[in-house]
């Protein structure tokens, strides 16, 4: 089987996640998929608009879609790995049909199920995530060529121009942080960050 890996540069998820977080200026919501994706999101510096998944592999994009539909004026970014998006490619078709202009998907693609022992994923051989995204109808989908290209692509307002998908070829370095494992607290803080939490006496 011939490899369809893109000819773009192999980059660092840790470094690019930091670049992304530093660029966010409008309280954008960021949904971090399970494992290394959200470890690096947490390591880039916690912010109230971050949501960290501790399971439900493959649902970063559906969760981000829900946030985007509920708050159409807020930019929403889903961070997801190649193994995770492969688990539920159908969500890309759903997003293509609903066309949320405030939703951007970033796929960190190292062609590995990295956290389970570096077994190869389908993107190691025949499958091209950008071609998949375009095929289901997300027209604004592209491979990121290098760090400068990444910075150029994210140097924009995230509350418009979507849905968009950026795929980034990354190395197999592990994530740098360790997300706190308290789901109820994560949910509550995220809701406060989005202005959707119930206010109460304990907030004082």
């Amino acid at each position: 089987m011939s490899s369809k890996r893109p000819l773009t540069k192999t980059m660092s998820r840790t470094a690019l996640t930091r670049t992304l977080v530093q660029k966010l200026k409008r309280d954008e919501a960021v949904i971090g998929g399970i494992g290394n994706t959200n470890f690096d999101l947490f390591a880039a510096g916690h912010r109230p608009q971050n949501f960290y998944m501790l399971g439900s592999m493959g649902l970063a994009c559906p969760i981000a879609l829900g946030v985007a539909l509920a708050q159409p004026d807020r930019g929403v970014i889903a961070l997801e790995g190649d193994g995770s998006i492969l688990m539920g490619l159908g969500c890309l078709a759903t997003i293509a049909n609903l066309k949320p202009r405030n939703l951007t998907i970033i796929i960190w693609d190292n062609a590995l199920y990295q956290i389970t022992g570096k077994q190869p994923t389908a993107t190691s051989a025949a499958t091209d995530i950008v071609a998949v995204a375009r095929g289901v109808g997300i027209a604004t989908s592209e491979w990121v060529r290098d760090e400068a290209h990444f910075e150029k692509l994210i140097d924009r307002r995230f509350d418009e121009g979507g849905p968009a998908l950026l795929a980034v070829k990354i190395d197999d370095a592990p994530g740098q942080g360790q997300t706190p494992r308290d789901p109820a607290l994560i949910r509550n803080r995220f809701m406060k960050g989005l202005g959707a939490a119930r206010a109460g006496a304990l907030d004082a």
């Binding site: 829900g66 807020r74 969500c91």
Partner: peptide, 9 residues
């Protein structure tokens, strides 16, 4: 998943 994201927002 979509319902969950919407609720949190």
């Amino acid at each position: 998943g979509t319902l969950s994201g919407a609720y949190m927002a």
